[in-house]
């Protein structure tokens, strides 16, 4: 609840700006979220595959 009030207050403080600027902020936030998810997943996938390759050599860590 406090978070929501804080968010509402922040939006009100920035309230002098026009709606287009809110849209710009959220649009780029949306793109960032859209990029963060796959990048994180791909990074994790590559890390795990690398670890698996190393584990294969020493026959440890797989199930």
């Amino acid at each position: 609840m406090n978070g929501l009030i804080l968010l509402a207050s922040i939006l009100r403080i920035i309230g002098q700006t026009t709606a287009d600027q809110y849209d710009n902020i959220l649009f780029y936030l949306m793109i960032a979220l859209w990029i963060i998810m796959p990048v994180f997943i791909v990074y994790e996938e590559i890390t795990e595959r690398r670890a698996l390759r190393e584990a294969d050599k020493s026959e440890e860590g797989t199930a």
Partner: peptide, 11 residues
């Protein structure tokens, strides 16, 4: 891929 469990060596 195979499941990787870090740090565990079952053998």
């Amino acid at each position: 891929k195979l499941l990787y469990i870090p740090g565990i060596n079952y053998a």
